[in-house]
Write a protein that binds this DNA or RNA. Structure first.
Lengths: 142, 142
DNA sequence: TACTATCATTTGTATATACAAGTATTATCA
DNA sequence: TGATAATACTTGTATATACAAATGATAGTA
């Protein structure tokens, strides 16, 4: 059943959740080739491109809670894709050589995801959708 | 930090998740007065208004997996707000008197949630946003 | 310089949800 | 009519994420 079939889905709550879950599915699919979740993949890409990035910054960029970042890093660390060094109150995260080797594959995942939704929604509509979401998210910042 | 500050949030993945989480927060807040999550609250409202509704229909309407519906019902049942009767392969869910008594409060929650986001986004923009989300969700149906 | 506040991160725990496999029932059809 | 398929739901388990409290470190101030 399509979402529009139900009057209940007129509610922003279910509409936004349903959309996010569907997009999540596309993303998970695109990232499955590197056996990482989209969040893990993004985080890894970020620390490859900005070595030493701190968990707090990652939390801001990825819009996740610091505790969530800790968990993501733990998993990447257990797979020897990143390492953490802590000095004083600052922690730096670096990709290992093994992690760095994944960069091309990671970019492929990102590209694949992008292509996928653009092919369904169209380039223009996709861009507008993202912009609109970001705008609304910002407005909703309490 | 606002989402627009990060180039990474240009990605549909984080944009949609961030938006859904923010809306979730608003909703959780509105439903907290009945000590139910938005999903539990909606489900309860639905079975009050359509007594005997089956888990499968609830799954369609709320756009959640049947297993998730089972869990939602279990919780409402443990709080004596609904009961399930199974005959053959069909299960019917009914609100208990105690559940039915909550209808006015539940409607208040829904209204509160609605008012809240409309006051931030405006009535027109809110409506357009929901419509757009539903449209995109449907397009993304694979 | 000691005291407290603030910051960065982690840990413990909880929630919402999903997927896959399992169970029970009914329908189909050869 | 008996075997197989389809339906409806539940159970076991896993993931993504959050919040609140705890830890440890530095900074500000009296």
């Amino acid at each position: 059943m399509k979402s529009a079939d139900s009057k209940f889905c007129q509610c922003l709550y279910f509409a936004s959740n349903a959309l996010a879950r569907k997009i999540e599915k596309l993303a998970v699919n695109s990232w499955s080739r590197v056996d990482l979740s989209p969040s893990h993949g993004y985080l890894l890409m970020m620390v490859i491109e900005e070595p030493g990035l701190q968990p707090g910054h990652l939390a801001n960029h990825l819009q996740l809670q610091p505790s969530t970042i800790t968990r993501l890093i733990e998993k990447l660390e257990s797979r020897k894709l990143v390492i953490r060094t802590t000095e004083g109150k600052v922690t730096n995260v670096y990709a290992t050589p093994r992690g760095k080797d994944m960069l091309p594959k990671l970019k492929e995942c990102l590209q694949d995801f992008y292509q996928h939704y653009v092919s369904i929604l169209g380039k223009d509509e996709s861009a507008k959708l993202v912009q609109n979401m970001i705008r609304v998210t910002d407005k909703l910042d309490l």
